[in-house]
């Protein structure tokens, strides 16, 4: 289990309890205030409680459905996720258009509880269901010349009202270096809390890279391309200075407009202090080796 997560599925309470955790957490946060929270950011417990399904599905960034946090929950049900197919192409042995069922065939669906840190300095803890991206890449056969993996979100003007706004160059695209993509922490999620992903969380399948800022974890994937060149990524195209290709969670490298040293915990309530952000979102033991010798202030 080691590298996968310091949290296990056993930490998640039964459904009846998590649906009602909002109140419990608010209470716990109040109790905690007296003991651990000074005026400054509190020390981060690595085994934070998972957020409730309501929190995870009501506060989202998915600009294809609008730029407000509540827009995805309001509009993402319009996304047709059945049928769904994913084009896998580029430097692979078995390129093609994979129907979702064929793509999932043979994948080991597991439950993994990951911390999720948004570039906007807020965070959640999310119990994902999904499989390691490495397993899918192995299935389609990565050719030796491939060095990067490019991803693309569905582009549905009829179903995505946010596409009318030119805030990003649509469709949304993301990318990983091949070793990042093959890392055992990197997963393709298909569910949360044992239920299928909702549109606002990137149904029917999305990337999850827990040591990078949330926008790297591209939603509703329709294309996966193996390539030998660093692929373009949407936020980097929109603002090169603010959003790098790597976008690893790093409390020492600030976003030009705000500090990344601390974060607000979603659901912690009105009086909860910010908590310190951890290097690689707390996954340094597992992933720091990927970046040995790299200047992370330069490759942000």
């Amino acid at each position: 289990m080691g590298y996968k997560s310091k949290l296990s599925w056993a930490d998640v309470t039964p459904k009846a309890a998590y649906l009602n955790r909002r109140q419990i957490m608010a209470g716990a946060a109040g109790l905690g205030l007296g003991t651990i929270a000074g005026p400054v950011a509190a020390e981060v417990p690595l085994d934070r409680e998972p957020n409730t399904l309501e929190q995870i599905t009501s506060y989202n960034n998915y600009y294809e459905f609008g730029v407000q946090k509540e827009d995805p929950a309001r509009y993402a049900h319009r996304l047709t996720t059945d049928p769904w197919s994913v084009v896998i192409d580029g430097m692979v042995d078995k390129p093609g258009t994979y129907d979702l069922a064929d793509l999932l065939d043979g994948m080991d669906i597991e439950e993994r509880i990951y911390r999720f840190r948004c570039v906007e300095a807020w965070s959640m803890v999310i119990p994902w269901n999904g499989f390691e991206l490495a397993q899918l890449l192995t299935k389609v056969g990565v050719q030796p010349s491939a060095k990067y993996v490019a991803f693309e979100t569905a582009l549905r003007p009829d179903e995505m009202p946010g596409l009318r706004s030119p805030v990003l160059d649509w469709p949304y695209v993301e990318g990983l270096r091949l070793d990042e993509a093959m890392h055992p922490l990197t997963m393709i999620a298909t569910g949360i809390y044992g239920e299928s992903l909702l549109g606002q969380n990137g149904a029917p399948l999305r990337l999850v890279v827990p040591w990078k800022y949330g926008f790297k974890s591209i939603k509703s994937i329709e294309r996966i391309t193996l390539t030998d060149e660093e692929p373009p990524t949407s936020w980097n195209k929109a603002n090169r200075r603010e959003y790098g290709f790597y976008s690893n969670v790093n409390p020492n490298v600030d976003h030009p407009r705000w500090s990344q040293a601390s974060e607000r915990v979603i659901g912690a309530g009105f009086f909860a202090p910010r908590i310190d952000t951890l290097m690689f979102n707390g996954y340094a033991d597992e992933v720091a080796g990927l970046y040995t010798g790299m200047d992370l202030a330069k490759f942000y």
Binding site: V40, R257, S259, P273, R274
Partner: peptide
Amino acid sequence: VLDIRDPARIWADILKRPY
């Protein structure tokens, strides 16, 4: 009072964050 709370970080934000 509710968000940043830490005087050092508040001052740093005022100086370093253009917005």
